[in-house]
């Protein structure tokens, strides 16, 4: 089921939490809604679920306008950030609860519950209460409860943020697997860019209620449309420098990085740490610090007064504290210093 938002806006008394958002969530895909805390992701998700009424705009499920439909009529499954499992019910009762509302026969409800439990892998936990489960197990119960109604769309609000680091890795693969197996359109809200990048078919980056960029994770990563997106994606974060274009050359301080067709102007230059390459014809920098993790080494140096990080193959780092670096032209991102937009050639 494709979900389409048209000019969706939500205004609380003073803040505009979501501002004129128009995006499409393709059918059968796992789509990550990504952005810093407070940017309006949950609000968007709750509007899609029907728990919040939009101030303006429309929501389509396929060809149906569901803007005014009550939540229970939309056919959605929703997983809350803290799971919202009913503490007084067993796992089985929790999963069955939505089915009881649908007045299904007990036999059928039980069968479906078992089926879901198998899917998320909590078969042996059915008689426990939520308090007796670990965070990851609670998470799976919540997903099972959301899926048991066979919803058209699955909505997940920061599903991994309450888990510890290792469980997070494991559970996100699990979510990916479940999505693949069921083929259900899934919208996945998170503030962790790594999480979104690693499992999404498509990401939508939001900031301050506005959609900044959408697309396939790798494309968005390689071609950030503005400074915000470039800074928000990637870990360690992108290095940025105040530079300028003069006579078709990209210049930081007195170092020339490459050529461009753009007009002369001041620019913000972004270079990801992994895009620096060791090369004899590069510019020379003096290393201030090193940290080696396995095959890669992070090299710290000062470039035109800015503390800069570069990720380099360990073999290429010599013992001397000077190194020559170079960046490929297509890896240099140029942004307008005022608006932050990407400058294209």
């Amino acid at each position: 089921m494709e979900v389409r938002l048209e000019g969706l806006t939500k205004q609380f008394t003073e803040t505009i939490a979501v501002d004129n958002v128009s995006v499409t969530f393709e059918s059968g895909k796992l789509i990550g809604l990504l952005g810093p805390s407070g940017c309006g992701k949950s609000t968007t998700l709750f509007m899609i679920s029907g728990l919040l009424k939009p101030t303006k705009g429309k929501i389509y499920f396929g060809n149906d306008d569901v803007t005014n439909l009550a939540p229970e009529k939309r056919g959605i499954g929703l997983v809350f950030q803290n799971y919202a499992l009913y503490p007084h019910m067993t796992v089985q009762q929790n999963i069955m609860f939505p089915l009881e509302n649908l007045k299904l026969s007990r036999q059928e409800a039980l069968e479906r519950t078992k089926e879901m439990a198998t899917l998320v892998g909590i078969n042996e936990l059915l008689d426990r209460k939520p308090a007796q489960l670990s965070g990851g197990q609670q998470q799976r119960v919540a997903i099972a409860r959301a899926l048991v109604k066979k919803p058209r769309v699955l909505l997940l609000d920061e599903p991994l943020s309450n888990l510890d680091a290792r469980l997070r890795l494991q559970t996100r693969e699990e979510i990916r697997r479940i999505q693949r197996e069921t083929g259900i359109t899934t919208i996945f809200v998170t503030h962790d860019q790594e999480e979104a990048m690693s499992i999404s078919d498509k990401i939508i980056v939001m900031s301050k209620g506005l959609v900044q960029q959408e697309g396939i994770p790798q494309v968005v990563y390689n071609k950030p449309i503005n400074l915000f997106v470039s800074k928000f994606l990637g870990n360690p974060p992108i290095n940025t420098f105040d530079g300028k274009i003069s006579n078709g050359k990209i210049i930081i301080g007195d170092i020339e990085l490459g050529k461009t067709n753009c007009n002369d102007q001041n620019v913000v230059i972004g270079i990801r740490p992994e895009d620096f390459k060791v090369a004899e014809d590069g510019f020379e920098v003096s290393i201030t610090d090193l940290s080696r993790i396995g095959r890669d080494t992070t090299v710290y140096f000062n470039l035109n007064g800015i503390e800069t990080r570069a990720l380099i193959n360990s073999e290429e780092v010599s013992t001397v504290n000077k190194i020559k670096l170079k960046v490929k032209r297509e890896k240099i991102h140029l942004f307008n210093p005022e608006a932050g937009d990407c400058i294209n050639e």
Partner: peptide
């Protein structure tokens, strides 16, 4: 009582009476 329990129930189309007997009263017990 966490408001999310009620949101979750709403998404599942739970009737008011059922919310009262199955969620509010047990959580308040």
């Amino acid at each position: 009582i966490d408001k999310q329990y009620y949101d979750a129930a709403k998404v599942d189309g739970t009737s008011k009476w059922r919310i009262f007997t199955k969620i509010t009263v047990p959580l308040l017990s």
